[in-house]
Design a binder for these strands. Sequence first.
DNA 1: ACACTATTTAGGATTTTATACTATTTAGTA
DNA 2: TACTAAATAGTATAAAATCCTAAATAGTGT
Lengths: 160, 160
Amino acid sequence: MDTGYREQINQLDRLRKALKSVGMKLTYQRMVVFEEVAKTNQHPDAEAVYEAVRRHIPSVSLDTVYRTLWLLRDLGLIRTLGPQREKARFDANPHRHHHFVCNACGTAFDFDSPQFDELTVSYKLELVGQVQTAHVELRGICRHCLESMPLRQEKEAKEA
Amino acid sequence: MDTGYREQINQLDRLRKALKSVGMKLTYQRMVVFEEVAKTNQHPDAEAVYEAVRRHIPSVSLDTVYRTLWLLRDLGLIRTLGPQREKARFDANPHRHHHFVCNACGTAFDFDSPQFDELTVSYKLELVGQVQTAHVELRGICRHCLESMPLRQEKEAKEA
DNA sequence: ACACTATTTAGGATTTTATACTATTTAGTA
DNA sequence: TACTAAATAGTATAAAATCCTAAATAGTGT
Ligand SMILES: [Mn+2]
Ligand SMILES: [Mn+2]
Ligand SMILES: [Zn+2]
Ligand SMILES: [Zn+2]
């Protein structure tokens, strides 16, 4: 994954702009963390990013790496897969269904979607491996949380 | 969620059959854990299941609850949402894409699907709340793991 | 009904992942 | 160059899940 010099500049510029837009500082740590995530397609975990960053900044702390990663996500510069401080949940509902998870309160709601059900089948053939499950997970803010939210925040959530 | 007496019998019977089919014992702990997950649509986490089970078996251990939950999942009696001993992963790929996660090695592979992309849009209007992201996550066994797998296990994986 | 034994459990220790705290350093500004 | 709020390093702590081992028990055979 050799991201050329030109692309690196773009990345850095995106980071700079994003930080400025929310009035945060551009630190060397933030640059290196972003670079290290941006230059791979391996979906590294925090520990892997930490090790990579340490090669540039030996004294960097794990805390800084985590803070920066969540920050980059909040800025829309990277996204996250898998848990972020969530626990496993269990579901014995045997009927085919999908989930909407609230980013505010964490509640998971069931919903049906014949449309989503179709897909899974047609995609099970081709692909990188042998598909066992296909899960569509929608995330957002649930009706309940929206109602108990100040209007300004609700508008922000809508824009996100 | 009042699962009637009839349905409870069915549940218990499913558990009994599933355990027998793999030569495992039907214990009171396993019955209660399954019952407690089966009788709610609240997607409880392990701690919540633990508390519920304790009302029936005060001395039950958290370890038993976890072991049983993963077992029930492996038997296909329940399913899990969210992480199971996975770490968060980070992804700076700005192009729209989805993921295939290998259940064996944990690797996440990118893949494109115009078909999957379409969906998200049409579903963003209706629903339980305000959708921010829609992520299709396929899970299974990646080609690499399939190749380094004994044939018998591969067949089992195919059936799962 | 009773005994046998591989399986399962309870309870506590441990690991893993991530966050909290705080004294020190630094980026942005003038 | 000096100022100051923001950010970091280093360490402590928390939270989620698993490991370990002696004791208990489900299923089996008599
Ligand atoms: Mn569900
Ligand atoms: Mn990706
Ligand atoms: Zn909510
Ligand atoms: Zn794999």
